[in-house]
């Protein structure tokens, strides 16, 4: 019995192991499963998109994170990665793509332009995608290096692992969506 046993874990989830059974809390297991199979939807419009392509490629290898499959359909995507300048004309399209994604969904804003308009402080460019959709993680840089994009993605993973499965039903989340006029099919409590 003098063996030092590692704390039993599935992924990062602590478990209680016994004879013929293993116990864990369901929400932690589900969160770990989600975090390890986030399907990204790249919404790449400019040079940040090129950096993102490098991130996807074999040198930096997003597939390590269970992100092998780029989902170019919003219906099957979990993570919207906005990489690049979004013009005001493109903003309604971005919003529509976000609305078409099924819950749960997260948004990663890659680079200065997507986060704040960047150097394009001009009448035709959206001054940050958080003007039209809620953003979970911002990645700074112009453009950010693949390492930075990976860090942003790892922060998304941290969110996915630690947030409550019922976050989407919380009042804060509903309030957030209402702020962006994204929750119009649900009746608002007055």
């Amino acid at each position: 019995m003098g063996k030092v046993e590692k704390k039993p874990r599935i992924e990062d989830v602590e478990t209680i192991n016994g004879e013929g059974f293993q116990l864990a809390t369901l929400d932690k297991v589900i969160a770990a499963a989600r975090a390890n199979s986030v399907w990204p939807l790249p919404f790449a419009t400019s040079c940040c998109g090129i950096e993102y392509m490098a991130t996807m490629g074999s040198n930096y290898d997003l597939a390590r994170f269970g992100m092998e499959r780029m989902s170019f359909s919003p219906r099957q995507a979990d993570l919207l990665i906005v990489a690049g300048t979004i013009s005001k004309k493109l903003a309604p399209i971005l919003k529509q793509v976000y609305e078409q994604m099924a819950e749960p969904k997260w948004v990663l804003s890659v680079g200065a332009c997507a986060s704040s308009g960047g150097i394009f402080d001009t009448y035709s460019v959206l001054q940050g995608i958080d003007r039209v959709i809620p953003v979970d993680v911002y990645v700074p840089g112009c453009p950010p290096r693949p390492e930075q994009i990976i860090e942003g993605i790892m922060n998304i993973h941290r969110l996915v692992k630690h947030e409550s499965l019922r976050r989407r039903y919380s009042d804060e989340y509903k309030h957030l969506l209402n702020k962006y006029h994204l929750n119009e099919d649900e009746p608002t409590d007055k």
């Binding site: 005001k88 004309k89 308009g117 402080d121 001009t122 009448y123 035709s124 460019v125 001054q127 003007r131």
Partner: peptide
């Protein structure tokens, strides 16, 4: 090129180049 509901002609000199909705500048 511009969005359809734009209500002015942006390259006329009386209009500012910068985005008018920025509050942090």
């Amino acid at each position: 090129l511009n969005e359809d509901d734009m209500d002015y002609f942006p390259m006329r000199k009386e209009y500012h180049l910068e985005d008018a909705t920025r509050e942090d500048k």
